[in-house]
Simulated scan of single mutants.
Amino acid sequence: MRIVGGANRGLTLAEVGEGDAAAHLRPTSDRVREAVFNLLEGGRFGDPVAGARVLDLFAGTGALSLEALSRGAMEAVLVEDGRVGQRLIRENVARAKREGQARVLATDATKLPANAGEAFKLCFLDPPYGRGLGTKALASALAGRWLAPGALVVWEEAGPMMPLPGTGLLDRRSYGGTAVTLLRVDQAQARS
């Protein structure tokens, strides 16, 4: 697994080892990550990466956020409640020399506390497949005011996902056994 574009292009990231199998982490493949960022940076959705504050729910190894930082995002908060994931994120943030731009929030993504800071414009949502956790995490992020009006949500699952109230569908793509659903947070929803 490596960073596929931007300033850290080619950087090899730490991955789940044999002793970490119980952590059930499933990092986004390089191929899917590259396709997602090509879609995001293609101009169809503006420029959601450059200068963005990124919220990464179920961050796993941190690959999605680190890819965004490599491509010009300003800051990332990586939400991960597993100890193995937290360790891998910290190791990968150090490898990429992004300590000043990335921080781990060690909590359950489905039970986010209220956000006391500035809201995020880009959200990666990569839950364990088929358990309904993505829906719960997105609802929690919306309720806790983590997402700014007009924020873009990139939701990776085993199949296409339906928008939640307060979001609208922008696009759906399939990459083998991975479905990517792009949503936009409604202007009114993020303020209420």
Rank of each mutant, 00 (worst) to 15 (best):
V32L: 07
F58R: 03
P48S: 13
F120I: 00
W146K: 10
V54N: 15
E75V: 02
T110L: 04
E34R: 15
Q189W: 00
A73Q: 03
D171S: 10
D20G: 03
E15F: 15
A114R: 14
G150T: 12
V77C: 04
T12G: 12
D47A: 09
V79D: 15
L182C: 02
Y129P: 12
E99D: 15
A151I: 10
R31L: 10
A158L: 06
D171H: 12
A50H: 03
A63M: 01
L39R: 15
G132W: 02
L152Y: 11
L133I: 00
L105V: 03
Y175T: 05
V185G: 09
R71L: 06
G42L: 15
V54A: 14
G132Y: 01
D47L: 12
A76Y: 05
M162Q: 12
E15K: 11
A190P: 01
A148I: 06
V185T: 09
G130K: 08
A35G: 06
V49Y: 13
G46A: 08
L125P: 06
G6I: 04
L88D: 04
A59W: 13
P48L: 14
S65I: 02
G177H: 02
D20W: 08
R103W: 01
S140A: 15
R9T: 04
M161N: 13
L133Y: 04
T110A: 08
P113N: 03
P127S: 07
G82W: 06
V180S: 05
R95Q: 07
G177K: 05
D20T: 07
L40W: 13
